[in-house]
């Protein structure tokens, strides 16, 4: 066991982990931030996407210890300071960009990272960027629409 310390959603946190503990498990189990989801065991689905130092990362591909000293944002950290839904989150609600909600945290985190890189993406750019996020419910139609709306609102 080793101690890992990082900033998560603006708060400094630390915890005891094994070398093999994944960042996704640390966030879910040690921090009880269960918005980050686990949809696969082959790093394919993107349900676990968080931001590490501003970059979208599949948290199941990273050991918790590798995030030592990093600044991590999870879906729980995406709301406005007053607690209302942030721009991307609100766009998903407005455009029915989610159904069961399981892929949604990863989708929102990927979408936010995309808009950071490319504030006005085309439909094709959005679809290509989401290549690593699987949604089984929405057929992606309304996810794309949500991201376009978020881009327009920003």
């Amino acid at each position: 066991m080793a101690t890992v310390t990082m900033t998560v959603n603006g708060k400094s946190v630390s915890g005891e982990v094994e070398g093999r503990t994944l960042l996704s498990d640390f966030v879910r189990n040690n921090l009880n931030l269960t918005g980050t989801h686990i949809g696969c065991d082959t790093s394919q689905c993107g349900a676990c996407v968080v931001h590490v130092n501003g970059k979208a990362v599949k948290s199941c591909t990273m050991f918790a210890l590798e995030a030592e000293g990093s600044s991590v944002t999870t879906i729980e950290g995406m709301a406005n300071p007053d607690g209302s839904l942030g721009t991307v989150q609100q766009a998903f609600q407005d455009n029915h960009g989610l159904q069961c909600g399981f892929c949604t945290p990863g989708m929102v985190m990927s979408a936010a990272a995309l808009l950071e890189e490319n504030p006005n993406p085309t439909e094709t750019e959005i679809r290509e960027y989401l290549e690593g996020n699987i949604c089984r419910c929405t057929g992606y139609h309304n996810i794309v629409k949500s991201i376009q709306a978020a881009a327009a609102a920003a």
Binding site: L33, M78, F92
Partner: peptide, 19 residues
């Protein structure tokens, strides 16, 4: 009508069985 359940799903507060 916009879906009210979305607020909890979008903020990471959904309660799935594994949670």
């Amino acid at each position: 009508s916009k879906r009210r359940e979305d607020v909890r799903f979008l903020s990471g507060n959904g309660k799935y069985t594994d949670d």
